[in-house]
Design a binder for these strands. Sequence first.
RNA 1: GUGGAUGUAGCUCAGCUGGUUAGAGCGCCAGAUUGUGGUUCUGGAAGUCGGGGGUUCAAGUCCCCUCAUCCACCCCA
Length: 442
Amino acid sequence: MGAIEPRILKGFRDCLPQQMIARQRMLRAIEGVFERYGFSPLQTPALEYSDILLGKYGDDAERMLYRFADKGGRDVCLRYDLTVPLARVAAQYGNLPMPFRPYQIGPVWRAEKPGRGRYREFLQCDVDIVGSPSLLADAECMAVDNDVLSALGVTNFTIKLNNRKVLTGLLESLGPAASSGENANGILRTIDKLPAAGEKAVRRLLATDNGLDQSTIGRIFEFLGIEGSNEQMLAGARRFFGPSEAGAEGISELSDVLARAAGLGVPEDRVRIDFSIARGLDYYTGSVFETFLLDLPGFGSVMSGGRYDDLISMFVGREMPAVGISVGVDRLFSAMAELGLIKPSKSVTRVLVAPMSTEAVRPALESASRMRAAGRATEVYLEQAKLKKQLKYADQRGIEAVVILGADELAAGEATVRLMTEGEQIQVPLGDLPARVASLLG
RNA sequence: GUGGAUGUAGCUCAGCUGGUUAGAGCGCCAGAUUGUGGUUCUGGAAGUCGGGGGUUCAAGUCCCCUCAUCCACCCCA
């Protein structure tokens, strides 16, 4: 008795009904946006063979993989995101019609230190477009991003946009020391820290961690220092790169994606080119985006993604371009809670049927069934209790209507319906109950 | 992982320089005449004072260790 202390693992959370109700509403809104863009649901397992996930994310991320041997001695990992499992699916099923447009809603796990808006288990909602190299697909991801936040009532945000080709072009222009393989990824991850860590720290890290000399670092910051409107930044970057350099292709893609996104109705002032956005994950190859809430500076990105044209080919060996974006549902939810955009609900029940005596139980059950058939979430009070207690039960749960069935009502063949917010009561013939309650509740 | 802060009732916290049976607000439960919630009034339940060790006649209060949480750095959704 009580010998086991109830507790929960660090970084993991219970979502009690009061939160879950609002969270489910949020998920439905997100799902609605996804489906309006023609994305279809996909689900994959929480566990994958380790070799499916390893080598896709980069060192920083891989340290955060939950990895263990299962009962059969298989080397497995909890998925770190939804993108790599999707890549596996796209590679594994040869009969998928392309472009393949799945959306996924599911938990992912990262064994990192939890903090504000950071958990070890959290829900991601991804949309991906597999099999199309079109930059229109990139722009669609941004439009989904914009629509999702708008649908949730969030208005003050910025989608930061960059292109990996710009960054790799930058590194190539610096010579082989900077642009070769793993070192290039390391440099990008360092650059990605710029908004959080600041220029000084990044300069130091580029020298100590990435082994760059001061003139190379100077050149990088010459590029990162390009400022101004999106147009001005594109123009500045064009001047920086020669026309034949790899970076120029990225600049042209950026310009294209911007135009397409505007065409899809993404307000232009919500999109900002930011050359320091690299994303911590290795698999990105083209567009990268991260979304920030301007009312919560320092909160971190609530939605992000990018193009990963080479990831799926790591499984199949042939070209398979893809682009996607991911909503950090839990983070977004806690951000919205901080901003007061979440209305908590205590229960989904809208009607409580209150039987006042044992004789009233049978008619109460029947009434409840008919109310449910009419589509109203209905509970029957389970114990014999005073009316006072039953009304209190309804009040505590925010239940809008109580159907009272007592001796008087039974004798008259009707029920008393009490509307809790108004405090009004009306007599309703039992036969009309579902229709009347439905119209009273709206 | 580094630095700082905090751990007292379900929640938010008070408890002065160590001194008898540890408090408040909110919440919860019950009652204010027999079938009417949310307001009010009355009453009630509930705490190994995070855990362990030490100093002392005496520790929630001082010291040490440990665990946990929060904030910053770091990293990301």
